[in-house]
Write a protein that binds this DNA or RNA. Structure first.
Lengths: 228, 228
DNA sequence: TGCCATACTTACGAGACCGTAGGTTACGGT
DNA sequence: ACCGTAACCTACGGTCTCGTAAGTATGGCA
């Protein structure tokens, strides 16, 4: 049974009081440190096994700690899961919302697509968790509800645009959902393949969403210039 | 504990040998009948609680039968689940494949979108199961792999089209994924809202995918005329 | 040096669930 | 009216997991 502390990168060797980042890295962690470590491990395991497929003991074991420690910090499995999901949702929502603040609709689309791909790349495990299902029956399924949150923002933008152009603004939700779905599922696919680079994927997504299959550009370019 | 036989609509009253469809409806079912009933119930429960959240006993209880019956028919929980998923995948794949056989790309798009919405409407529980996760870790996650299957078909079509138009056919997978994602996630949204009618949703999806946000038509129409 | 709060452990209760062994009842043909 | 077979049941073993009770070690601080 390999014990592995994922976050702190401190696993083998006796207590070895070598100088760490702040104090000395020791076997017995601070409450806050342990908490973060458990969150990291939990996120990883939930991502690969799902909520029900992950046991508290497994999380504790990977942290090199016994079960009750988890209970002291989070009150139970659901508590830990809730914190993990909450953090991920905030993160993703912040990134996408930030990308949807100002600009021409086409730019917004581009930025939002890029933001999502960025999130997926940086917080892959989190994304996998959000895509999976929540503890029970998920009336407010994490992903569905999050997607809806984002879609709502897109709706508002589209609603204005539609009015300006004389389209029925009642259709904004449908189009918003379609756009978000397009980017989200492409992201889900891209997580595994990683074939074209992020920027290229974003460019093509914008190409499709903006020009449509009927008028695709052969070599789409992003308006904004980003490095990574 | 309400016992309810979902499919056969035969639940209360003594054996009552009234004339049924073929023979007489009786408490003790035929092997095949029981099998189908268990599949129906299993599909429903898996759809609302997920695989791990559903117990064999629960399925048996809802069928008004004891656990070993399930084991005799399917060898276990995974066996039943496998059959349910297999049937749903076949169904969906058949419908979509059928819609992707002949025609102009735009027509294909329209037909495929319509086919998916059709499936979702008719086999809602099945769709929910496919969207959820499979037994363990799902290396071949049911939905992801199914989406890929469909995407592959779209890829082939797009690949030809791209070549004809002088685009890079290597990008076909990306566009295929984006299109399938757009329709699939819109479908997932539509399952709950059911707000615009199916035909209207399909029309707008085609509108977006074909003309793009930059050149949307105000009142898109479907080429094919369908009733429901 | 000795105290004490905090971090952590071992051990166990309770319940859920899967899967099976072995026995029982009803149906349909003769 | 009988009998075999297909459908079905009760009862239980074994495993896994959540969650808790009660006790132990560690390290900073007076």
């Amino acid at each position: 049974m390999a014990i592995d502390s994922s976050s702190a990168s401190n696993s083998k060797g006796k207590p070895s009081p070598a100088a760490g980042t702040r104090r000395a890295r020791r076997v017995r962690m601070t409450g806050a440190e342990r908490r973060e470590q458990l969150l990291d491990i939990g996120r990883t395991l939930f991502a690969e096994r799902g909520y029900e497929g992950t046991s508290v003991e497994e999380i504790a074991a990977k942290a090199g700690v016994s079960k009750p420690v988890v209970y002291e910090h989070f009150g139970g499995k659901e508590g830990l899961y809730a914190v993990v999901v909450d953090r991920e949702m905030r993160q993703l929502l912040d990134m996408v919302t930030g990308a949807l603040t100002a600009g021409h609709p086409r730019e917004l689309l581009e930025q939002a697509a890029f933001a999502l791909l960025d999130y997926i790349e940086t917080f892959t495990d989190g994304f996998r968790i959000l895509v999976r299902d929540s503890p029970v029956a998920q009336s407010t399924g994490s992903f569905a509800s999050l997607i809806s949150d984002i879609a709502t923002q897109v709706e508002d933008i589209l609603g204005l645009e539609f009015k300006a152009r004389g389209f029925d603004p009642k259709l904004a939700p449908l189009y918003a959902q379609a756009l978000v779905g397009m980017v989200a599922l492409t992201g889900q696919w891209w997580v595994d393949t990683r074939k074209p680079k992020k920027a290229e994927v974003a460019a093509h997504l914008v190409n499709l969403a903006w020009h449509g299959l009927g008028n695709l550009e052969a070599k789409p370019r992003l308006i904004g210039h980003r490095k990574n």
